[in-house]
């Protein structure tokens, strides 16, 4: 921490910045950062709670080499990629449509907006359960009802297409986030630019393509990068719907840690997966921060 150079105080003592900052920094570091160092330590050890007889032995990078040579890990990695990427695409497309629809004046706008943001506030555990039991239940659910109504073949969505179904579920929850960010972007398009484009004879599509979209790009990037980091951590929806199955078909990285750690009680292995996830996130965050610092420099100084 450097010497603060704040608003000059007329009594002449330095503003109490340190006292204001340190408590929160220490508290957050203690709880969120120190445990990660322990995760690294554990990941270098052979330690299974189901085998107390074997004790804890240093094993170097053996946990990592075991995971990296495990086919399940690559399936999980692929799932994480598909789930996150798929949900992001759906969120972006539907979010953009919603935000364009909401960027107008019409009767009942407030209520419609409230309805559209609601899924974001539904806890993942409940969202997953409602989808699983009431919408998608293969015998009693709403989709089964529509299938029988139109004589479509009956599909057990979560059993046949677990990952795709979870993608839709997660997208349902995150679309509001995209909609709101993109709406903020749409509303900040300068009026005079729009007017100028109008006067130049640009039609609605041209205005969207040449004026709105370039302006929106910054907001799209914020939404995608933040969505990426948060959706990568999806856990509750998987826990209550498929429990990662069948096999590993719908297990993503966070759920993999849960399975290895709290079902296999492999402390070392689960820690190693945890370290791998954090490393991947750090790579993503570096890109994110570079971008955020660039975009919001004015906001940050």
């Amino acid at each position: 921490m450097h010497k603060p150079t704040g608003i000059p105080d007329k009594k002449g003592f330095a503003p109490p910045v340190r006292r204001l900052l340190w408590p929160s920094i220490i508290f957050v570091a203690l709880i969120t950062q120190i445990p990660f160092l322990v995760t690294i330590y554990y990941s270098l050890h052979d330690w299974n709670l189901m085998r107390p007889d074997k004790g804890i032995t240093f094993s170097g990078i053996r946990n990592y080499s075991k995971i990296l040579s495990d086919a399940a890990f690559y399936e999980v990695l692929g799932n994480t990629f598909l789930l996150t990427g798929g949900a992001l695409i759906v969120c972006l497309v539907v979010g953009l449509v919603f935000s364009l629809l909401m960027n107008r004046d019409f009767f009942g706008k407030g209520i419609v907006r409230t309805m559209l943001v609601s899924p974001f506030f539904i806890m993942p555990a409940v969202a997953g359960i409602v989808w699983k039991t009431m919408l998608l239940n293969p015998s009693f659910g709403l989709t089964a009802y529509f299938a029988s109504l139109f004589h479509f073949p009956l599909i057990d969505w979560l059993a046949s297409y677990p990952l795709m179904t979870i993608v839709l579920m997660v997208a349902w929850q995150w679309i509001p986030f995209f909609m709101l960010i993109l709406l903020a972007g749409l509303q900040s398009v300068p009026d005079d630019v729009m007017e100028a484009a109008h006067l130049d004879g640009a039609n609605a599509l041209q205005r969207f393509q040449h004026v709105i979209l370039p302006h929106l790009l910054k907001y799209i990037e914020v939404a995608v990068l933040l969505g990426l980091i948060f959706i990568m951590q999806t856990f509750g929806e998987i826990y209550v719907t498929t429990a990662g199955g069948p096999g590993y078909a719908s297990t993503n990285l966070p759920y993999f840690v849960y399975r290895v750690g709290f079902q296999g009680w492999d402390v070392g292995g689960a820690s190693a997966v945890g370290v791998i996830i954090v490393l991947m996130t750090i790579v993503l965050m570096t890109a994110l921060f570079k971008f955020l610092r660039k975009t919001f420099q004015g906001e940050l100084t």
């Binding site: 957050v28 995760t39 554990y42 966070p254 849960y258 996830i277 965050m285 994110l288 610092r293 940050l300």
Partner: peptide, 24 residues
């Protein structure tokens, strides 16, 4: 700025990375 981004980074780090030591 560093302090701010440090705070932000703690929010982005996956819980899965610290859950095992927390449990132990």
């Amino acid at each position: 700025e560093d302090v701010l981004f440090w705070f932000m980074s703690t929010k982005f780090l996956p819980v899965a990375g610290i859950i095992i030591p927390l449990y132990m």
